[in-house]
Design a binder for these strands. Structure first.
Lengths: 231, 231
DNA sequence: CCAAAAGTGTTTGTACTACACCCATGT
DNA sequence: ACATGGGTGTAGTACAAACACTTTTGG
């Protein structure tokens, strides 16, 4: 006689997936927030989220939710923490698994985001958010800092071709501190994972600044041989 | 007319909390595994786990589950990832939020752990586990390595008084690599966060080796002034 | 010719690595 | 006296940090 698992008396919960969406406008790191359309807290700002469905895993749910808001497929995603305070959502017990995502701001579908009343904010000018979303954003930023200093994921936030100035701005904005430009350039050069293009971006100076591409293949080769990205 | 949140049509799930329990026997890092008593997979080894209840958050659930198995309260805990493959538990859709915990092996209640058929294994000699628990353990170890190199949490695995040899063994075992003893001692000394006691441990040599305590207060002071623990 | 941004190297200090011998004690 | 584990320091190397001037070009 077999004993079978009987889970029927266990409590079930709603499992939300909430996404901190990072973007970069060539100057500053931003997050995309939406205006909540439901009570409670209607009209207040919040993270984009949705509920996990029975036929998908959490990564798939996050991708679905992000596609729905931005129109972009295969967004870079990292799951970083789950939030479970008993009364975090006053309407019903809800656990939230939080992700952060990195998108190239140029790629998103403005029509879609406008339908959600979504808006980009810098970290410092972001409004108060519903529930525990302020905490989630704070934790997302520290996870992002951790990860971007160890893996070359910052490029996910940039267009395919970018200037060194933009790259520099990006890292300064992520770490919220000044990084000496010469040391920064030395470090980037020494890693040798960028391709310098012949093209220049003439939009910000008379001299123009060279455009670069991230050389993913070279990076993966070097990584396979023990190289570690580090900023 | 207010629109109210209506979550009633959303899928609900069982939310499990699974715990990778690390211990250290003065020689090697170990994990505590239990023998599953329910079908499916009865008699196979697994992580200790349980289901989240409506009146508690995830940290509380993890503490409850660990107290239940080990008899220890206020165990050091880190939540590190959630696992959600659709068919990970063949009996029913279950999402697992995974924690790792660090305990001083001397503290746990042997009677309780024996009731669960629990046993300590070194990482390399651990048996195959049910579901995705092998993956969970693997990820727990890398989270632990990350964290122990940046925060002084290794002491959670040691008794209050320990020898430098034990501390050294601990870090070698966590990182699974040899650490030059003189460099290790130099680093530990330079951080200046241990208290050297007058007492010696005579159990492993004629000369005896000094016992040390972690100086939490001093560490917190130094940390507040910008000091970072680093191994 | 000048304003504005882009581009570029060197020096100094700090941290990590590699490495070997003496000490204390019980038997 | 010797075997066993405990304890300690230094020199070389590599990485990180600080720092300022020249170049280009459109107006």
């Amino acid at each position: 006689m077999k004993k079978l698992a009987n889970y029927s008396e266990e409590d079930k919960v709603l499992l939300a997936v909430d996404c901190v969406i990072f973007g970069f406008d060539r100057e500053e790191l931003k997050i995309l927030l939406i205006k909540r359309e439901l009570e409670p807290e209607r009209g207040k700002w919040s993270l984009m989220g949705g509920f996990l469905r029975n036929n998908e895993n959490l990564d798939e749910a996050a991708n679905r939710i992000l596609l729905h808001l931005t129109g972009i497929k295969d967004i870079y995603l990292e799951q970083f923490h789950s939030y479970s305070k008993v009364d975090r959502d006053p309407a019903e017990r809800t656990i939230s698994v939080a992700y952060y995502s990195l998108i190239n701001m140029e790629d998103h579908n403005h029509e879609l985001t406008e339908n959600f009343g979504a808006k980009w904010f810098t970290i410092s000018s972001a409004p108060p958010l519903i529930f525990d979303h302020n905490l989630i954003v704070k934790n997302a930023i520290s996870s992002l800092r951790d990860k971007t200093s160890k893996e070359p994921i910052g490029f996910e936030l940039l267009p395919p071709k970018f200037t060194r100035k933009q790259l520099h701005n990006l890292y300064e904005s992520i770490f919220n501190e000044e990084l000496d430009i010469r040391n920064f350039v030395n470090k980037i050069n020494s890693m040798d994972i960028l391709i310098k293009l012949d093209e220049k971006d003439m939009s910000s100076s008379r001299k123009g600044s060279y455009l670069y591409k991230f050389d993913q293949e070279k990076y993966l080769e070097k990584k396979a041989q023990g190289f570690d990205f580090k900023i």
